[in-house]
């Protein structure tokens, strides 16, 4: 009896050891799940840990990050992050490896396309990445190298030269286009200095941190979290699915000083459509 018990516990111990070893092996392989960076960024693996944790990471060319080939103004670098080639995107983040503040924005497309265009500041040439969190918990990542000279994050906002910037802060402009695919293309511009807190003039960080796009009944269609690298006077393009009958989109914003912003963008059906022109 005694002997049998010992034997059984030995078996259990061996089993436990094997399971344990298996678990360790699994953990090891999880740590190695991050594929190597085709752009060979020195920070890629650290940033992958920071943004993706232990989730599986896959490089995917269907996530397009588009930037111009020439950059003259590092404070206003146009970027398009487009994951419309994928189904099941829960959330999209955009980050730039070599920026002093890497996280640029997060898009949660509840009733919207996994797509956002905007402009950002670049402190130097850097990989720019769009990562999509999929319903299965996987992160799919697209990257591009941005060739920029520098100074975008540490240069003071242009608005700081105008005495009346505080009068115009929060003023919003926007327009909607009904697309043949049933989505509404929304362009929005909000006046805001978007101070990074890194400028030579010691202006503290002051930026819009949230833009929520809602239906007339308050249903969240898309939500954007912005960070300091988004350019002054954020100008964005997103595509939302307006509920049937809604002829406008409500946008609620908030900056890191707690000031809130509200705008309503008309999106009537009779407004000029895209006329069958396909936009890739």
């Amino acid at each position: 009896m005694q002997r049998r018990t010992t034997t059984r516990s030995l078996h259990l111990a061996i089993l436990a050891f094997l399971i344990g070893a298996g678990a360790v092996a699994a953990a090891e392989s999880e740590r190695h799940l991050v594929p190597d960076d085709p752009l060979q960024s020195p920070l890629w693996h650290d940033l992958a840990t920071k943004f993706f944790g232990n989730q599986k990471v896959v490089l995917d060319q269907r996530i397009k990050v588009i930037v111009p080939s020439i950059i003259e103004n590092q404070a206003q670098v146009p970027v398009t992050a487009d994951a419309r080639g994928l189904d099941g995107v829960v959330k999209m983040i955009v980050f730039a490896d070599l920026n002093p503040i890497q996280h640029v924005l997060t898009l949660t497309p509840r009733q919207a396309a996994p797509y956002v265009s905007f402009r950002m500041k670049a402190e130097q040439g850097t990989p720019v990445r769009a990562a999509a969190l999929m319903t299965d918990g996987t992160w799919r990542v697209g990257s591009v190298y941005l060739d920029a000279a520098g100074g975008g994050c540490s240069a003071p906002a242009m608005a700081r030269k105008d005495a009346d910037w505080s009068q115009t802060v929060g003023l919003a402009q926007g327009r909607a286009w009904r697309q043949p695919d049933g989505l509404s293309r929304i362009r929005l511009r909000v006046r805001h200095p978007m101070d990074t807190g890194l400028a030579k003039d010691n202006t503290p960080a002051f930026f819009i941190e949230k833009l929520d796009m809602r239906s007339s009944k308050g249903e969240g269609l898309a939500s954007l979290e912005l960070f300091e690298p988004v350019s002054e006077d954020p100008t964005l393009t997103v595509m939302v699915k307006l509920p049937k009958g809604d002829a406008s989109l409500n946008v609620e914003g908030r900056d890191n000083n707690g000031t809130t912003y509200r705008s309503t963008i008309p999106a009537a059906f009779d407004q000029s459509s895209l006329g069958g022109v396909s936009i890739q």
């Binding site: 111009p68 080939s69 020439i70 003259e72 103004n73 206003q76 146009p78 802060v169 929060g170 003023l171 919003a172 402009q173 926007g174 327009r175 362009r187 929005l188 511009r189 006077d233 100008t235 946008v251 000031t259 809130t260 912003y261 509200r262 705008s263 309503t264 963008i265 008309p266």
Partner: peptide, 24 residues
């Protein structure tokens, strides 16, 4: 052309996008 888009587009956006909101 690429440079010109970046020079001219922000001006168009500032001038032509309709006003839709402000601080609340």
């Amino acid at each position: 052309y690429e440079r010109s888009v970046m020079h001219l587009y922000p001006k168009l956006e500032a001038e032509k996008l309709p006003n839709v909101g402000k601080r609340s």
